[in-house]
Structure formats: C-alpha cells, structure tokens
Design a protein around this nucleic acid. Structure first.
Lengths: 224, 224
DNA sequence: ACCTGAACACCGTTCAAGT
DNA sequence: ACCTGAACACCGTTCAAGT
C-alpha cells in the first residue's frame, strides 16, 4: 500500500520553500490550478500534506512562491546588453512565453498582487529601460502599466483561446464562422484563429513600442 | 431550523438559468469567486443545491451564464449614435467599469472562452466600428485583440491593485517606497498608486486609439 | 525542529427516490 | 418536470501527538 522506506544511505531531501514551489508548479503544469491541493502536493513530495505547513503558512503564500519561481523565466535583458527599446521588445516576448509554457500557472501572475523582491528586481530593469529612453517617472509609470496590461491580457487570451478545458463552451469561432448571424464576426473570424496569435501579439507590441519611442523622442527634444 | 414554508398565495418563483445566474453574480460580488458553491447558491435561492442541476449542467456552465449576465453591462454605443472612435472609447471605458463594479466576477471574462450569442453581438458592434473606420478584416482582428488585451489586462490590474485579499502579499509599494533597494521603482512608485489608475487607463487607451486612427487614415488614403 | 494522523467544516457531482 | 437526501471522493486548515 505504501512505498518501501528509502534506505538511510539515500535520505529524502529535506523540504524547502523552493523545492515545494517547484513541485507545485510541476503539478499545476500537469493537472491545472484546480489540480493543485496540499494533499496531492505532499504526495508528490513523499510527505504528508500537513508537513508543508511547516514551510509555507497557507496555500495563498504557496502560490506566491510559485509566482516567484515563474518570474525567473522572465528573460529581460540587462542594461547595456542592447538598446532600451530592444530590451523591452525582447523581454515582453519572453514574458508571453511564460503564458505559453505555463498556461495553468500564468493567471497567478495576472490575478495576484506581486510585490516580492524578485518581482521588484524585474520592475527595476523595466523602469531602467524607460529612464534610458528619457521618460519622466510619471510617464514611466504610465508605460509600465500600459505595457503590462497588454502583455497580461495577451497571455490570458492566448490561454483562453488554446485551452480545451473540460467544461469550456464550444469553439463556435473555429469552424463555420460564415454560418453565424454576425457578418462582421464572420468576416474577421479567420484572422482571430489561434494560428494568428503570434502575428497579433507582434503587431500590438510594435504599435505600443512605436508610440513609446515617438513620445520619448518628443520628451528629449521639446517641441519649438 | 428551516424557514417556514411560504403560503401558496406567494409561491416561490420557479428557477431559471437567468435567475440562477443573477443570484450567482450577487453571491460572487459579496463573497468572491471562491465563495460561490452550488450548496450556498441553492441556499440563497431557497432550494437544495441539487435542484440547480436541472437548469445548469455543471458549475462551469453556470459560470458561463454569469458571463452572459455580466456582458449586459458592456455599454457599447450602437452604430450611428456617435463617431466610431468615440463609440470605441466609450465602450472600452464602460468595459473597465465592469471590472470595478464586479471585481470578483471580472476574471471570468478574462480567463474563460466567451462564445455565447450575447458575446458575439458585442463583438459584432466592435467590429462594425473598425469597419466604419476603413480597417480590413485582417487589421480589424489585430485591433480587436490588441484593444481586448489592453482592457482585460487593465481590469485585472485594477482588481489586483485594489483588492485586499486575506492571503495577499503585503503592499510594499504603497508606503515607504523610498526605503526599497530599487531606485527606479522608488522614483516611479508614487505614480503607480491606486489613485492613478484612472489616469493610466485613459492614457493607454488614448495611445492605442490614436495609433488606430492614424492607421485607419493611412488605409483610406494609400500612400503615394 | 520536523512530521504524522485524526478531525472539522466544507466542496462538485451521482444516484435513487419522492411528488 | 422538478426537487430532495444520502452518499462518494475530495478540499484547506487546526490541533494534539509523536520523534
């Protein structure tokens, strides 16, 4: 019924927040957010569920730890490595890849407040790029949020479009869009398909970064 | 223990999907998404939980019905009422208000696929505005998604920034930002506060609608 | 210090039964 | 046709106990 005890020569690695978070992410990736329970996580780690509470005070804080783990995949180039605008473009594409690589975990980044030191380190790099472009703190805040809104919304849409949840509504859009009583929707539907999501993301991001560059140039060379 | 039976003169209103969805939304608004259970919803409707399954096949489909109810608040002006760009601006501001009015339910709109007839009717109106501006179907799809990413991301950030969930991480940003070891974050933090969210949303939306107008004008008057 | 095991107050959903 | 009640297989978390 239970597995044979390991020999003392290979003792079980001790629990730690990092090890727990890593296992939690793996479980979420495999079974979805709803598939993560303290009991199943304990099982995956070879331990009773209640043992986890010695390292993590609640499931909420465990999810925060998973976010900290996730943000490590946010590959935002360091200042000096390339021009600021390229760093932003590269970084935001990498951020979207988190949504694609971890579709069940990504909503945590969007829906939960994220104020850990690791998160702040990423924010700092983003804001360095804005400052390098000559934006004021007020303008930096606006662009920080605007770009964040875009990439978070894009990631969520990527997930909602791709995911075939067992209770999801049927995908009316993917087949026979011409049968719909909505002519505009029917005409546009082919361009809303999942295989166009890369194109759309690149388009929207370029649109925003162009406007950002334009505004930065204006700020450095005041009109008149 | 149980409430007295109502007299036959005032028979309990019969259940219906709409009545169930309305009660579910009220429950979500009051107690959060996690506070919605079939048992508690039944209780709110004066009925056993299992009675709900005669009108709704699963909790997933119930959530779809709540989305259908929510989208009724999406006040997107009809064609002819005002210029296309103003309709878009008005509609997208109204959409954000859904996030602010129903912070616990809004994530459903962002995270779940939304292909009901009511949703298509809204999509149709949005796409009519793009067509009126002279966008091709391919361009309409790009702008439809780009604007959708922005408003969905903005709504989620509005919620995450405001909500004081019991297990949320502390709000390092709101107080003593100058104590952080991240100079750029410290400088920008005052402009990231909750009381600046209206300003940020207006800014980002204007940025996007400007780019959209610019592109529409180019499309109608081919260069050279 | 770290982990276990029982218990509490919940879940969504199935099923057989009532009217 | 519509609703009930018991049951099944789960939850997060508390608490007292073990080592």
């Amino acid at each position: 019924m239970s597995r044979a005890a390991l020999p003392p020569a290979a003792p079980r690695a001790p629990l730690s927040v990092d090890r727990i978070a890593e296992a939690a992410l793996a479980l979420i990736d495999r079974d979805g957010l709803a598939g993560l329970s303290m009991r199943r996580l304990g099982q995956a780690l070879g331990v009773e569920a209640m043992a986890l509470y010695h390292h993590v005070p609640s499931k909420g804080r465990l999810l925060d730890a998973v976010m900290d783990r996730l943000v490590l995949d946010f590959d935002l180039p360091a200042p000096g490595s390339m021009p600021a605008l390229d760093r932003l473009r590269h970084g935001l594409h990498a951020y979207r890849q988190i949504a694609i690589a971890h579709p069940h975990a990504f909503p945590l980044l969007v829906g939960r407040r994220f104020n850990s030191p690791g998160a702040f380190a990423v924010y700092e790099r983003l804001l360095q790029a804005f400052a390098e472009l000559g934006l004021s703190p007020a303008q930096s805040a606006r662009w920080f949020r605007t770009l964040g809104y875009f990439v978070n919304g894009a990631g969520m849409a990527d997930i909602a479009s791709r995911e075939q949840a067992p209770d999801a509504t049927p995908l009316l859009l993917q087949r026979q869009p011409e049968a719909l009583p909505f002519p505009q929707v029917a005409a546009v539907a082919p361009y809303l398909r999942v295989d166009r999501l890369d194109d759309v993301f690149g388009f929207g991001l370029d649109m925003l970064l162009q406007a950002l560059a334009q505004q930065a140039a204006q700020g450095q060379t005041p009109a008149r």
